[in-house]
Design a protein around this nucleic acid. Structure first.
Length: 447
RNA sequence: GUGGUUGUAGCUCAGCUGGUUAGAGCACCGGAUUGUGGUUCCGGGGGUCGUGGGUUCAAAUCCCAUCAUCCACCCCA
């Protein structure tokens, strides 16, 4: 049969894994230094945990897992006869693959509320699955790296998360723009345009601003029933407010706007601005689709590559309410590892990484050399030096080719002369320099 | 879910106004080279031309369907 992969999934070779781990390590270390604790949750959740949390579109993109056994025996026969897939679903599938890390986290919190100390800071680096149509930087299986704080409304955390974004991207060598907004500002904004009653449609139109531009936005608002002069008012505000904080004061004439501005100001006051390397801007056009956000929202985009957002997050006042755990406010961010990877690849930002950790490879001419090599290898490994032997005596050319393919920095050549001298010929693969060394010297050189 | 793109060797692709036995580069294997690879030279293996159907004396090439891929939209990381 012809081997193939399911749509939107990928294998990762050794070098890719090294590169991915490089990204994960930087993110993980940053999470750790701010005191976040690691958790993991299962790839699959009960479907009831997942459905209804991401809107209708989200439900469509959930991977459902068919029940085991004779699942048709218990199927809703009525729905089956009517070919009503939606109705049939609950009777043939009770589990699904997780769609993000936030909802499983909320479920986790609710189940473990008595064991955890709040505020609880957790991070989680795991794959998620979406039945989306793949395209550039978008897959059906991809990793998210999330950090969230549950059980505190302090704006210290918003500032902390912005700092984490800044630190991680600075460490990765990526120039980014961190966009910041507040749902309350959006509400004031909607009110300003007389669209308070069409809030969610308004935010979707706003969110598309980067793509549709002024013209498209005008169209969208017209369709929402906004009056022409109000539309002009809104557009003026957008055009003047980006990167210009003082213009935001227009929104202060609304009570909710004042509240939003106040919170943003507090977040800014907590920011360690002196050490922030990337741009943090308040951007009124940032809305974010996920409807559970209630406070600050943020999103990160690369300044050097054309790609969707490479991270996003925000505050949700009622994180765990649906699971019966009331009064828990949460705020968190997510890194899109796949997109970060693609941008770093494009900009060649990865350090030089080798697929294998092997420091030295032993090459031999005959069986006795091989035996001798094996002993030396064992000695090196006892000294915690990664060493390999070529598994059989072969033409040196062939052995050298293998050495080149694995990128091992040193080879140790063993022949009759070396055995008699109790030594090996150690060759530096980069410079081509070669010297005869004994075991002690070798351990010293590579240790 | 909507629109478009591309499917030919392990990889990247050429061949496409239908016409012998389908090509190149890279990779791989062997040799020049029985104690030193990356350069060079010589030789070699490897293809149901995505799949199914149709048109034709003749299809990688034209038509239809289907699957896959990538890209854009919706949405998102």
């Amino acid at each position: 049969m012809k081997p193939s992969l399911p749509k939107g999934t990928r294998d990762f070779g050794p070098l890719q894994i090294r590169k991915r781990n490089y990204i994960f390590e930087i993110i993980r270390n940053t999470f750790e230094i701010y005191g976040y604790q690691p958790i993991e949750t299962p790839a699959m959740e009960n479907l009831s945990t997942l459905t209804g949390k991401y809107g209708d579109e989200g439900d469509q993109l959930l991977f459902k897992i068919l029940n085991n056994g004779d699942y048709l025996a218990k199927a809703d026969t009525g729905a089956l006869a009517e070919k009503d897939s939606k109705k049939l679903l609950s009777s043939i599938s009770k589990r699904g693959l997780r769609y993000d890390l936030t909802v499983p986290f909320a479920r986790f919190l609710s189940m473990n509320r008595n064991e955890l100390s709040f505020p609880f800071k957790r991070y989680q680096i795991q794959p998620v699955w979406r039945a989306d149509r793949p395209q550039k930087g978008r897959f059906q299986e991809f990793y998210q790296c999330d950090a969230d704080i549950a059980g505190s409304t302090s704006l210290v955390y918003e500032a902390e998360l912005i700092e984490i974004y800044d630190k991680v991207f600075a460490a990765l060598g990526l120039n980014v723009k961190i966009r910041l907004n507040h749902r309350k500002l959006l509400q004031a904004f909607a009110e300003h345009g007389g669209l308070a009653d069409r809030f969610s449609e308004f935010t979707t139109a706003l969110d598309k601003w980067d793509k549709t531009g002024e013209q498209g936005f005008r169209e969208d608002l017209k369709n929402l029933g906004a009056s022409l002069d109000k539309i002009d008012l809104l557009i003026d505000l957008i055009n003047s407010s980006v990167d210009n904080e003082s213009e935001l004061q227009t929104l202060a004439q609304y009570e909710i706007g004042r509240a939003g501005l106040d919170e943003i100001a507090k977040v800014r006051s907590f920011l360690d601005t002196e050490h922030i390397q990337n741009k943090v801007v308040v951007d009124l056009t940032l809305a974010r689709g996920l409807s559970y956000y209630t406070g600050c929202v943020l999103e990160v985009e690369s300044k050097d590559a054309k790609m969707g957002s490479i991270g996003g997050g925000g505050r949700y006042d009622d994180l765990t309410g649906v699971f019966g755990f009331q009064g828990i406010s949460g705020v968190g961010i997510s890194f899109g590892a796949e997109r970060i990877y693609e941008i770093m690849e494009e900009l060649q930002l990865f350090p030089e990484l080798k697929p294998s950790a092997t420091q030295v490879l032993f090459l031999s001419f005959d069986k006795e050399d091989l035996l001798y090599s094996k002993k030396w290898q064992s000695a090196l490994i006892r000294n915690n030096i990664a060493a390999e032997i070529y598994p059989e005596p072969a033409k040196l050319k062939k052995q050298f080719k293998y050495a080149e393919g694995t990128g091992v920095p040193f080879v140790a050549i063993v022949g009759k002369n070396e055995r008699e001298n109790n030594s090996v010929q150690l060759k530096d693969q980069n410079t081509g320099e070669q010297q005869e060394v004994n075991l002690e010297q070798l351990i010293d050189l590579l240790g």
